[in-house]
């Protein structure tokens, strides 16, 4: 991977003299080390630790699992331990429909939320991108502004809004739109509202950046040629904003799948999500190995959409060249 990246960056320098090229190669190698070191320290090593725990067994000890793959007994000991590794915890996950159902319902909830966020976020991003240039920084600021308040407080605020005697119901009752308070809190609807609200900026920002770059003379040309605005949108604007749509959807979908706080606070007890299952394994069962296995599977489940996202981005970059 490193070599491939290097050869790409070195290619334009083909005409430079040899020592300069060598120096540049070293420099670019150094630059490239930083992100790789970052990934190694904050992603790969933690993942290896989690994976290692997922292969062990629970024990009444501190920490509560049997050590696996230690180097305490030398290389020979390491090899004999390697032979004893068991994937029992993974088999366990397939035994019980609980885990499968939890994954499924997490993906389902995250999927619906993503579609809703897209439906809400697209018009906003479009409006921002078409707004006068002087106004755009202010609009961007407004999108980012909610981050200045703690995420937890904002989710708690939704409890106050959505509860039976909350602000929303009071408003609707006093205006005579409804006569019975709506039950929203502790339902799936509340979870959707919470996720869409919390992750909307992550949808809007990439959409905005791809819509802003768009060349609007294309739309004018379409209109000159007699294309009605709706089909001009679907034939030109939307396809051109597709990288933004994909980026936005991934940024909402991926964290929403593993979301724990929003379903816990806004959802009812009937909501089964993988975040909660993980919590149960870790805290209630004290079964760090099984919860690690759940986490590893969740990661694998999420890596697929991330890879789709990556390849879409790579394609978009190709196109823009």
């Amino acid at each position: 991977m490193t070599d491939a990246a290097l050869s790409v960056s070195a290619a334009p320098d083909a005409r430079s003299s040899l020592p300069v090229r060598a120096l540049r190669a070293v420099a670019s190698r150094l630059v490239i080390i930083v992100p790789y070191a970052w990934l190694l320290v904050f992603f790969l090593i933690p993942f290896v630790i989690v994976f290692k725990i997922s292969l062990s067994q629970t024990a009444i000890a501190m920490p509560p699992y049997t050590p696996v793959l230690g180097f305490g007994e030398g290389i020979g000991g390491f090899w004999s331990q390697l032979k004893e590794l068991s994937f029992e915890n993974y088999l366990w996950l397939t035994d019980d429909p609980l885990y499968f159902n939890a994954y499924l319902s997490s993906v389902w909830i995250a999927g619906i939320s993503t579609i809703l966020a897209l439906a809400v976020g697209y018009p906003i991003a479009y409006g921002m991108a078409r707004a006068p240039t002087a106004l755009r920084p202010t609009l961007l600021m407004l999108v980012i502004l909610p981050f200045w308040t703690s995420f937890l407080i904002r989710v708690y605020a939704w409890i106050g809004i959505l509860k039976p005697e909350g602000l929303l119901n009071q408003l609707l009752l006093s205006t005579g739109i409804i006569h019975q308070p709506l039950v929203i809190l502790n339902t799936h609807t509340a979870i959707f509202i919470g996720i869409v609200y919390s992750y909307l900026p992550f949808m809007i920002l990439p959409l905005y950046s791809s819509l802003e770059k768009m060349d609007y003379s294309l739309i004018e040309a379409a209109q000159d040629l007699g294309c009605p605005p709706t089909s001009a949108f679907w034939k030109i604007t939307f396809p051109l904003s597709l990288p933004g749509v994909i980026a936005g959807c991934m940024l909402v979908f991926i964290p929403a799948v593993g979301e724990f706080v929003i379903p816990d606070l806004l959802g009812g007890s009937q909501t089964l999500m993988i975040g909660r299952t993980l919590w149960n394994e870790f805290f209630a069962n004290r079964d760090w190995p099984v919860s690690s296995a759940v986490a590893v599977i969740l990661l694998l489940l999420l890596i697929v959409p991330i890879m789709i996202f990556q390849s879409a981005q790579a394609r978009a970059q190709e196109q823009s060249k």
């Binding site: 019980d96 609980l98 159902n101 007890s269 009937q270 909501t271 089964l272 299952t277 149960n280 209630a284 069962n285 004290r286 079964d287």
Partner: peptide, 15 residues
């Protein structure tokens, strides 16, 4: 503990 937690999840989620 595992049996009880599993049963509890079933009860709480009503499934």
């Amino acid at each position: 503990q595992r049996v009880v937690t599993r049963a509890w999840t079933k009860i709480v989620t009503g499934q």
